[in-house]
Write a protein that binds this DNA or RNA. Structure first.
Lengths: 339, 339
DNA sequence: CTGAAAGCGCTTACAG
DNA sequence: CTGAAAGCGCTTACAG
C-alpha cells in the first residue's frame, strides 16, 4: 500500500518545528505560540497524520482498550450489552474489543499480551484459573455473575446479576398457574470447575420443587446442550415422550424459540399444550407470537454498571461489587392449567 | 492492582542473562545454549511473563490486529462471519476486533490510530469518503459488497456478494408462484452517498417488475426503516391497507421475522395470506415455523475469502476481487397463488 | 516560552 | 556462539 505512515516527525519537518511541539499541539496540554500551532495543524491536515496509539500505549502504559469477553458473541443479548458499553466507553476515549470465550490458554495469553486496560467477562464455561489470569497480571477485571465461586481472585469485581431471583419468579409464576411438570434447559457448554452462575437457575428450579413438594424429574433437565440443533433435538424428544412436561424454562430466548419450534413441529401449541419461559428479553422474545414470557436481565443497567466500575478501577479507585435485580416479563407463552 | 507488569528485563535478571537472550528464547529464532534457555523458560514461568504485544507492534510495525466493521454487531449474520474469521485468524496469530460502524469521523480516526494490520468492512451506511480513510493511510482493506461505487479507493479489494442474483432468484420464485403484489423492506439506515449494495436488492426487485410487466407500487417499498420497532409498525400498516401485498421480500431474516410478527398480529397467516422471503439464513430462519424461505449468503465462503485475501494483502501480495454466489433456500413461507 | 533527551518494551542488524 | 546498541513513535520531566 502507500508506503510508510505519517509520523509526528513528518509533521514536525513539514511545519518547521520540533517533534515535541507537535505533541503539545495534538495533546493540547502546553502553551504553543499561535504561529507554530497553526503551522502544525496545517501540516497534520496536509499529511493526514494520525497519532500512533500503539506508541502512546507503550509510553504511557495505557491502551484505552477494553476487552469484553462472552461465551457467544452471536447472541443478541451480549451484543446489545457491548453496544451500550461502547457508547459510554467512546465518550471516555476507550474502545472495546468484543471477543468470544475460548477455552484455550494460548488464546487467553494472547489477549493478556495485548495490554488491555481492563476486561469485562461474562462466561459460564471458563475455569476460574483462566479468568484469574487477568487480575493476576494486573488487569482490572469485572465479572458478570455471582460471587459464589471460591476459586475466583479477590481482585475481581462482580456485577452480581440476580439470575436466582429471576428464576424463582419464573418458577413461582408457573406453579401458580398450576404447572407441576416443569422442564428446564441449560444450553451452556459447561464442564466441571466452571463459572456456572447458570447453576443459580438450577438452584432456583430445584428449590421451588422442594418448596411446593413437587417431584423433580431428572429427565426434565436438559443440560450441556451443544448448540441450537442439539437443543431442538433434545427438546423434541422430551415433548414426544408420553410423560411430557407442561411447561419449560429455557436459559435464553433464542433457545426458547428453538424449543417452541420443536413443540410446534410436534403439532403441539404454545401455550395451550406447553408453557415456555425464556431469559434475556431480546428481540426474538419481544416479537414472538405469542409474546415470550421471559426473565429480563436489565442490560442498560449492567452495561453501565460494569463499564463505570471498570473505568473507576482502571483509574485506581476502590470499587465494590454491585447487585442487579432481574424481573419477569409476562407475555403470552404460559397458560394456567386450572382454568 | 498488582503493581507493574513483568517485562523481558525482569525475566533476564531472574535468569541471569541479557534481555536479548530472552527475546531469542521467546521467539525461538536463534541458537541459545540449553542451559540459558532453560533458565529463561523457568524464569518466564515463575514470573508469569507475557511479551508485550504493544511494544512488539511498535518495533515491528505489525499489530496482528484486524478490524471487522459492520453495521450491526447484534445481527447474528455478522457475528457468525466474525466467528468463522476468528478461527482462521487465530491460527495465523491475528486477533479480530468486532466493531459497530459509527458514522462519525472521530471514531474512524480513533480506529485508524490503532495500527490495525488490516480492516474488513461490511456497511450500507458509511460514505466512501470515510471508508477510504483506511486504504488512504495504508491499511489493507477488504469490503463486502460490490464494485459498483465510483468513489471507493482502488486500493480496496472487494468480496463481491451476489445480492443482486439472489434477489432475482427470490423474485422469480414469487412471480412463478403467481404473486404480483410484492412488497420490499430495506431496514438499513441509509442516507445519501452511502455504500448501499442493498440497492442491488432494489435493483433486482425493480427489474423483475419490468421483466414481467408488473406495476411497481412505491407504497410497497419500505426503506430506511429505523430499527425493529419501525419495521414492525411500517409493515403492520402496510398489511392493514386494503390493497395489501400478497408477498414481501425483507432484507434480513430477523426483520422478516418481525414482519411475520406484524402479519400474525393482524390475524393473517403465513404463507396462506402473505408470503415472506428473508436474507441470510440465520438461526431464526432455520427454526421458524413455517421455515423461512431466504436468500442465503454463504458465510463460510465469504469469511474465508475475506480473511485470506486480507492476510495476503497484508503480506504484500497482489490480490484480486472475488465473486461469491448466493442461493435461494426454499422453506415454507411462500405459497403459490395459482393453486 | 521552548527544545533536547530519556525512556516505554520490544527486535534484530551489527560487531565481536 | 552471544551481547551491546539502535530504533520503532510517542510523552513529559528537565534544563535552559
Amino acid at each position: 500500500m502507500s508506503g510508510k505512515r505519517v509520523t509526528r516527525k513528518d509533521v514536525a519537518d513539514r511545519a518547521g518545528v520540533t517533534p515535541t511541539i507537535v505533541s503539545y499541539v495534538t495533546n493540547n496540554n502546553r502553551y504553543v505560540s499561535k504561529d507554530k500551532r497553526e503551522r502544525v495543524l496545517q501540516a497534520i491536515k496536509e499529511l493526514g497524520y494520525h497519532p500512533n496509539t500503539v506508541a502512546l500505549g507503550l509510553k504511557c502504559k495505557k491502551s484505552y482498550h477494553i476487552a469484553f469477553i462472552c461465551d457467544d458473541i452471536s447472541n443478541e443479548h451480549f451484543a446489545k450489552i457491548v453496544m451500550d458499553m461502547e457508547d459510554i466507553a467512546n465518550e471516555r476515549g476507550y474502545i472495546i474489543s468484543f471477543c468470544n470465550t475460548r477455552r484455550d490458554e494460548q488464546y487467553i495469553n494472547k489477549l493478556i499480551s495485548r495490554q488491555f486496560d481492563g476486561a469485562i467477562i461474562s462466561t459460564d464455561i471458563l475455569e476460574g484459573e483462566l479468568i484469574n489470569k487477568f487480575p493476576d497480571i494486573g488487569i482490572p477485571t469485572i465479572l458478570f455473575g455471582n460471587r459464589i465461586h471460591e476459586n475466583i481472585s479477590k481482585d475481581i469485581t462482580f456485577v452480581n446479576i440476580d439470575i436466582y431471583g429471576g428464576t424463582l419468579k419464573a418458577m413461582e409464576h408457573l406453579v401458580k398457574e398450576g404447572h407441576t411438570k416443569i422442564a428446564f434447559v441449560d444450553s451452556s457448554l459447561k464442564e466441571q470447575d466452571t463459572i456456572d452462575y447458570n447453576d443459580l437457575r438450577v438452584k432456583g428450579y430445584a428449590e421451588i420443587h422442594e418448596k411446593y413438594n413437587m417431584v423433580l424429574n431428572k429427565d426434565y433437565i436438559i443440560q450441556g446442550a451443544n448448540g441450537y440443533k442439539d437443543v431442538f433435538e433434545k427438546s423434541y424428544k422430551l415433548f414426544q415422550s408420553k410423560d411430557r412436561p407442561t411447561a419449560i424454562l429455557v436459559n435464553d430466548d433464542m433457545h426458547a424459540y428453538i424449543v417452541m419450534s420443536a413443540v410446534k413441529s410436534l403439532n403441539l401449541q404454545v401455550p395451550e399444550d406447553v408453557s415456555i419461559i425464556g431469559y434475556n428479553d431480546t428481540t426474538i422474545a419481544k416479537y414472538m407470537v405469542p409474546r415470550l414470557t421471559t426473565v429480563e436481565i436489565p442490560r442498560k443497567k449492567i452495561s453501565r454498571a460494569a463499564l463505570e466500575l471498570l473505568i473507576d478501577k482502571i483509574e485506581g479507585k476502590v470499587v465494590k461489587d454491585i447487585d442487579i435485580d432481574t424481573d419477569l416479563i409476562i407475555g403470552n407463552t404460559t397458560k394456567s392449567m386450572t382454568q
